[in-house]
């Protein structure tokens, strides 16, 4: 086993989540999937902030990233809301939950 400290581990996990989210975003034409993928990406980013707050694990955690993550989550929620409502409209107007260019 490779010896990973906690900070690095979470950072890796965050990166992987971001990657998975990104893959989801570009690979699946369904809008709902894309929006969810976005959220996964977001979570990946937050994870990295948390990892940064953890630092080397010694001493108190840095409070700043926490504040950032909270702000980020708020923004992400807003964005998700808008995205979902747009997706609904797309579905309503075009009869399909996919964008034209993404239909194969």
């Amino acid at each position: 086993m490779i010896d990973l400290d906690t900070g690095t581990f979470y950072m890796l996990v965050g990166t992987v989540l971001f990657g998975i989210g990104f893959y989801g975003l570009i690979a699946y034409p369904h809008l709902l999937r894309k929006i969810l993928a976005m959220n996964i990406m977001g979570i990946g980013v937050f994870m990295i902030f948390i990892a940064a707050a953890y630092g080397s694990g010694e001493g108190d955690p840095d409070p700043v990233p926490h504040a950032l993550v909270i702000t980020g989550i708020v923004v992400a929620v807003c964005a998700t809301g808008l995205a979902l409502s747009l997706a609904v409209q797309v579905q309503a107007l075009t009869g399909s939950p996919k964008l034209d260019a993404d239909k194969e």
Binding site: L25, L31, K34, M38, A79, L82, A83, L86, A87, Q89, V90, L93, T94, L99, D100, A101
Partner: peptide, 10 residues
């Protein structure tokens, strides 16, 4: 427009 907005959103 809505499609464009959606793409823009993403």
């Amino acid at each position: 427009a809505v499609q464009a907005a959606m793409r823009y959103m993403l």
